[in-house]
């Protein structure tokens, strides 16, 4: 994952979002910049919808961050996976959800 050495001596790239690591501390919103906004608004049921009118489902919009989080919790316990948990929440927010 995103840890390949980049070409040397290039102009300072924008700071790459740090991929979560096991045991890392996390603050709410820390990962929000990583995810571009996907939803355009809410339908009359209050569900977030995309630019083509598709209704997003919280179960299924962020499979990668969800899988990483679940595997981290399974292997290390929830208390050691705060960064993974925050990152999945950041992804959900980009789809218009408000996870706790």
């Amino acid at each position: 994952m995103g840890n390949t050495p980049s070409t040397p001596a290039r102009a300072p790239a924008p700071p790459a979002p740090a991929a979560p690591t096991v045991g890392a501390k996390a603050t709410p919103g820390q990962y929000d910049a990583e995810f571009t906004k996907q939803f355009t608004g809410y339908n009359q049921d209050g569900k977030p919808v995309g630019s083509e009118g598709q209704v997003f489902k919280p179960c299924c919009v962020c499979p990668d961050t969800k899988r990483e989080r679940d595997e981290c919790v399974l292997a290390n316990g929830e208390e050691n996976c705060a960064a993974f948990i925050e990152r999945h929440k950041a992804c959900l927010r980009s789809y218009g959800f408000s996870p706790k």
Binding site: G46, P58, K66, R69, D70, V73, L74, H88, L92, F97, S98, P99, K100
Partner: peptide, 10 residues
């Protein structure tokens, strides 16, 4: 009552 439950699936 329309809140979101998120849980790991194993």
């Amino acid at each position: 009552d329309d809140y979101l439950v998120d849980h790991s699936i194993f």
